[in-house]
């Protein structure tokens, strides 16, 4: 797509085999997603649970194997090969800081793990210095290296998770709902930290979240996903201030605004969420869509460019 893209994903498809009441289903979690991430950019991926946003992130770091499609990192196709090299360059921050740190390992050992595996350190002193530097960078005292996850608050654990991510000096960070498990006051601290790190370390970031408020805060561009496909993609302000796809419109309208004079309850219609087992034949959003026409029921809308954005809808 883009000459200076550090990450270029084309036509990614991922499916899972699921067994339900004795029958086997093939659930297509990601159904032809193309994305590119420019150097130093933060691209937000937003969508409801089950839309495939996490699967996109996990395929990039090789935690799930795509059915087809390519994942290009700085011009090289990474699908299937060179995992070790890639894993040092593309790192992931996970949602749940309680589940993603090994409870029986000291924080320092978790933070240093990628370096240990890849022979980064020639001496103990060098290792300790790297751990201390990573912890300092995320606003934790170096003494946290000797502590265990149970001694840390949620915000501190997520900071430790970020320290682990940045230790090998990656160029891309995939952040999968990194602040969803945190309280609002702590969430703001961690978001600020991620913005600081992006600037200081020149990171490019794929920021996956269900929360448009958080996405609006941190990302330059947003891709909105629905049932495995991108339905709208544009600069963050364009999407938030003037959503065009009927699904994006309903997502933006449903954000509970912290203003009692702008009440929306009972005033908007959002429809029932889809079943992954029964994908509609045409546009996946058609059953919930106020604009759905006959064409939407039979023909899947392709993502096309409309002015300064990309849209997948027959009717806007």
């Amino acid at each position: 797509m883009n000459g200076n893209a550090v990450l270029d994903i084309r036509d990614l498809k991922v499916s899972f085999k699921v067994r339900r009441s004795g029958r086997k289903y093939q659930v297509r979690a990601v159904d032809g997603v193309s994305l590119s991430l420019a150097e130093g950019e933060v691209l937000g991926i937003v969508g409801e649970s089950g839309c495939g946003k996490t699967t996109v992130g996990r395929s990039i770091v090789g935690l799930v194997r795509p059915d087809s499609g390519t994942i290009g990192f700085k011009g090289r196709d990474m699908t299937g090969a060179g995992l070790r090299d890639m894993r040092l360059n593309i790192r992931m921050v996970f949602q749940d800081p309680y589940a993603s740190l090994n409870p029986r390992r000291a924080i320092g050992d978790s933070v240093a793990e990628a370096g240990d595996i890849n022979g980064f350190f020639t001496s103990r002193a060098e290792r300790s210095a790297a751990i201390a530097a990573a912890l300092t960078a995320v606003g934790l005292d170096p003494s946290f290296a000797a502590r265990y996850p149970y001694e840390l608050s949620g915000g501190q654990r997520q900071r430790a998770g970020i320290a682990r991510t940045i230790l090998p000096s990656p160029s891309i960070v995939i952040a999968d709902e990194p602040v969803s498990a945190l309280d609002v006051s702590v969430q703001a601290q961690v978001l600020n930290l991620m913005m600081d790190l992006r600037e200081q370390l020149g990171l490019s970031m794929l920021f996956i979240s269900h929360d448009l408020g958080v996405i609006g805060q941190i990302s330059n561009r947003v891709a909105v996903m629905y049932m495995g496909r991108i339905v709208e993609q544009a600069a963050t302000r364009t999407v938030l201030d003037d959503p065009r796809h009927p699904y994006t419109r309903s997502l933006v309208a449903a954000i509970p605004k912290p203003d009692p004079s702008k009440r929306i309850l009972g005033a908007i219609e959002t429809g029932e969420p889809p079943s992954l087992f029964k994908r509609p034949s045409g546009c996946a959003y058609a059953p919930r869509c106020p604009l759905a026409s006959q064409r939407c029921l039979v023909e899947v809308p392709e993502l096309r460019s409309v002015g300064d954005r990309a849209l997948a809808c027959h009717n806007v």
Binding site: S185, V186, N192, L212, G213, P258
Partner: peptide
């Protein structure tokens, strides 16, 4: 006041979110 200030949706476009220090 701090809780309201640190909500992302109240700060759209701001470079940094106001925070409540500590825990």
């Amino acid at each position: 006041r701090g809780l309201m200030d640190c909500m992302p949706s109240r700060n759209s476009g701001a470079r940094r979110l106001p925070t409540i220090a500590g825990q």
